[in-house]
Write a protein that binds this DNA or RNA. Structure first.
Length: 273
DNA sequence: AACGCGCCCTGTCCGC
DNA sequence: TGCGGACAGGGCGCGT
């Protein structure tokens, strides 16, 4: 599921719903979503901490608590973070972790495939981990020159290059494909063969598609929900992702699907060279 | 040492 | 209706 726009949407919802609240108890139903902690360690560490802020880095939800504790949630493919007062009972069938708050509500982590992970850090520990991610694509540091110089150093297909979180933080398969369509670059092209002019178009395309997707509260293909349990609204605006066999919205050619290193890529054979 | 690959796991859909 | 295979937003560890 979730790429930068979906994580960002959840973060904005959570910020409003949980900031300032204290965690009064923690239940772990599916221990395999925890990294480097037993359920007992996780429960003991989180209990009685107060949530100071909620933010995002790459596709991660970063919850800062008092007394030097940071809870980082990566949603994997099917992870959801929802507030218990926003979902109907029984709607969540794979709750892995419950965080009970001081007002009686719960923050629920639900994950059908359990590819998602919850991890606790100290401030310093998270700073270290965070340094391994690349530039935030919506920040001022993500310049055309930055992108062009980075692309020059690699011969992998540009679609794969865009998925590398140590290069650009937060772009996943949907938005990589959409940005490449907007920029007129075929997903299979080697990164180092993208021209300076194309890199500039790609940089703008990445920023535009991410910002537009955030404005629509993300893309729901099947599993993604925001913190209120609602679907995203960007899926009708996808131009190539998941549209194999449909006409290109720009030229009418038939959109193709190719598999690059085990993941689908979609493109218009006429508009993307 | 950059890169491709297999794997983690469940659900859904499609063809037979 | 059932069954097997393909496929799904991600990311890690491995071998080359």
């Amino acid at each position: 599921m979730p790429e930068l726009p979906e994580a960002e949407t959840i973060v904005r919802d959570l910020k409003r719903r949980v900031t300032g609240h204290r965690i009064t108890s923690v239940q772990v139903a599916k221990p395999d979503v925890l990294t480097h902690a037993t359920p007992e360690q996780f429960r003991r560490k989180l209990k009685d901490h107060t949530i100071k802020s909620v933010g995002r880095r790459a596709k991660n939800i970063v919850i800062r608590l008092d007394r030097d504790l940071v809870l980082v949630i990566n949603l994997g493919m099917t992870g959801r973070v929802v507030s218990s007062d926003a979902v109907r009972a029984g709607e969540l069938r794979h709750v892995a972790v419950r965080l009970k708050l001081d007002d009686g509500r719960e923050v629920l982590y639900d994950d059908a495939r359990r590819f998602g992970r919850l991890e606790l850090f100290t401030d310093a520990g998270w700073t270290e981990r965070e340094s391994q991610f690349g530039v935030e694509p919506l920040s001022n540091d993500f310049t055309p020159a930055h992108l062009y110089e980075g692309l020059k150093t690699s011969r992998v297909p540009v679609r794969n290059w865009l998925l590398d979180q140590s290069r650009i933080a937060g772009v996943g398969n949907i938005y990589a494909n959409e940005a490449l369509f907007r920029a007129g670059i075929r997903p299979t092209r080697r990164a180092n063969l993208v021209t300076r002019a194309e890199a500039t178009r790609l940089r703008d395309a990445i920023r535009d598609v991410l910002a537009e997707a955030i404005a629509k509260r993300g893309t729901t293909l099947s599993d993604y929900r925001d913190a209120s349990g609602e679907e995203g609204g960007f899926q009708p605006l996808l131009q190539v992702y998941g549209r194999e066999g449909e006409p290109c919205p720009r030229c009418g050619s038939t959109i193709r699907r190719v598999v690059i290193t085990n993941r689908s890529a979609f493109y218009c054979p006429k508009d993307q060279k």
